[in-house]
Amino acid sequence: MSQFIIRRLLQMIPTLIGISIIVFIISQLVPGDYITATQNPNMTAERADQLRAIYGLDKPPVQQYFVWVKNMLTGNLGESFQHKMPVTEVISTYVWNSFVIAFVSSLLSWIIAAFVGVFSAQYQYSWFDKMVTLLVFLCMSLPSFFIGLLAIKYLALDLKLFPIGGMTTAGLNAGGWAYIKDVAQHMLLPVTVLTVLSVGSLTRYFRTGMLEVIRQDYIRTARAKGLKEHTVIFKHAFRNALLPAITLLGLELPTLFGGAMILEQVFTWPGIGQIYLASLNMRDYPLMLGFTMFLAVLTLIGNLISDILYGVADPRIRLK
């Protein structure tokens, strides 16, 4: 097993090099740079040249690439043009805020989707299944900013059940439990909306997975033995229905840290999503490239984790 992991980790190196090259080339092909994006009406050509020299944008692309890679190897992702501080610091400032809501909402969606999916598979074409299917498609098709704004209007502004936006109450200098409680309160609305949006597709996965499993012979055998339906579903079928979901679990890793661009904007949540989006608009290359590489590494690790989990869960495909 450890040999497998080491081999996979080594394989990640050429993949990462490939990714870095592709990502860098695309960034070079994108028109404009930070200096043109700032749109400063007083910028003279000389000052623009000075700035390009300070940022290293005047060097040929190949040289820029190697400088970037060399710095990356030492853990230095460069300094963000916009934020005037190291990229790693920018990311660590905002990424955890995104992680908190993404983690809680993923947890909720997985739990809800697992149960709802299993039940609607068990009672396929029943009234319950049809209602769930309708709801699921409804949720999946609604644009996130729309539900977000609607929720703010009715739940926060009219009914005053939740705070309107932000992560904490302004001017609250609380620590410890009071702080956690305050953040939790502010989280409720964004987490609910995120969960509603993501639970739909997951439910369909679980439903399909379950439907495939309960048609198999061993389930029929279990039923023929006279086992209770409950035992058949949860003890025999459910575990096998979970297998395909493991792949999804691995891919979930980058989304936990990637931030939700639109919803963060709607709920004024100080997450990394909007920061990343701004870096694209402003052509803040160090931040844009640095965060993309960060996501790429997480994707690779996510893949590795799901492969390992596969082996753990399913003896048939355990690698030797």
Partner: peptide
Amino acid sequence: LSLMLVTLMAFGSILAACGGNEEAAPAAAP
């Protein structure tokens, strides 16, 4: 392939997400 897709998608947003916002420009004027 899926990895490539994720990377490309993350980058695709560069091209898609850059609605040049005129409001942003005057704000930066010192």
